Simulated scan of single mutants.
Amino acid sequence: MTSHEDRSMIVITGATGNIGRSLVGRLLAEGAAVRALTRDPARAALPAGAETVGADLTGTDDLTPLLAGADALFLNLAAGGERAAAAVLDAAAGAGVRRVVLNSSMAVSDTPDDDAHFISRMHAGLERAVRASGLEWTCVRGGNYATNALAWAPSIRGTGVVREAHPGAQGAPVHEADLADVAAVALLDRSGAHLGKAYAVTGPEQMTLARQIAEIGWATGKDIRVEQISEDEAAEAMSGGFLTKEDALELVRMFGQTVDAPLFPVSDTVERLTGRPGRTFARWARDHAADFS
């Protein structure tokens, strides 16, 4: 537990997102002072111990005041996109923030392949900006987020059917609370052990999409059927918002490649950094059973 005199102010972007919400609670429990940035503080429903601040990171306002007095920053690309993340990073450097922990992706390989795919290209570009910022840094590269399964929730609630192009696609889904715990270790580190590190973070076991769906069925008591569809149909259903049909098709085909072998091995990062095993997908399904009911 951090002493009162020692309390660090940590700014969290994406504070009401899946990782951010878990991270706010974890940091408060460790005695840190937390400034949680969110578009709508009135609806944030964050713990009273956090300083919840309204912020539109995609706007034109000066972001420096949001970082004033902060020691560290958790930077999440999902909280506004690439331009917003770059603007927050610049503001952090200008405000005298000492450390940034970036929520990145295992798609980043630190090889020329990073320019070959839109996900790796996006995250690798931000990692390069973080390294060049002059701040202390740690990158938390998440793999297959367990929360991706929430995309099935409407169809599970509505019809009890999940439609996927590749039910046999394999991954090691990681619980958002484990990503938050790893980020917290890096944000609170006083030894310097985690500086300049890029940590690959997965769940504790490989499983197919079909197995994940079965775990949700067991957690909810629902009889869920899996229906296989074409790659084009899957891409059409996935596209929208920032994801074009072309990008969605690229993702679907990438998932198809994992039917024969997972893209990434299971990592031991969660256990190594936190001292306890990573949370299983079965645990995640129980934690989120209400989302599918």
Rank of each mutant, 00 (worst) to 15 (best):
M1V: 08
T2V: 09
S3F: 04
E5Q: 14
M9R: 14
I10D: 05
I12V: 09
T16V: 05
V24M: 07
L27S: 04
A33G: 15
A36W: 01
A36D: 10
P41H: 13
R43I: 11
A48Y: 07
G49V: 11
D56Y: 15
G59T: 14
D62G: 09
L63R: 10
L73C: 07
G81C: 07
E82D: 15
A84P: 06
A85F: 07
D90V: 14
A91F: 15
A92W: 03
A95Y: 03
V97Y: 12
V97D: 11
V97F: 05
V100R: 00
N103G: 07
A107P: 02
D113K: 11
D114C: 10
H117W: 14
R121H: 14
L126V: 02
A129T: 11
T138S: 14
N144K: 06
N144D: 08
N144F: 10
N148A: 12
W152M: 01
S155W: 04
G158R: 10
R163Y: 08
P167K: 02
P167C: 11
G171W: 03
A172E: 04
P173R: 02
E176N: 13
R190P: 04
G192N: 04
H194Y: 06
K197A: 13
V201A: 02
T202P: 00
T202D: 01
E205T: 12
E205Y: 13
T208G: 06
Q212A: 14
Q212T: 08
I213S: 03
A219I: 04
T220S: 09
I224K: 00
E233V: 05
E233L: 12
A237W: 04
G241S: 11
L243D: 07
K245L: 14
D247L: 08
T258E: 05
A261S: 14
P262F: 03
P265Q: 03
V266Q: 00
T269C: 00
V270N: 03
R276I: 09
P277R: 05
R279Y: 02
R283D: 15
R283G: 13
R283H: 15
A289L: 12
D291F: 11
S293R: 13
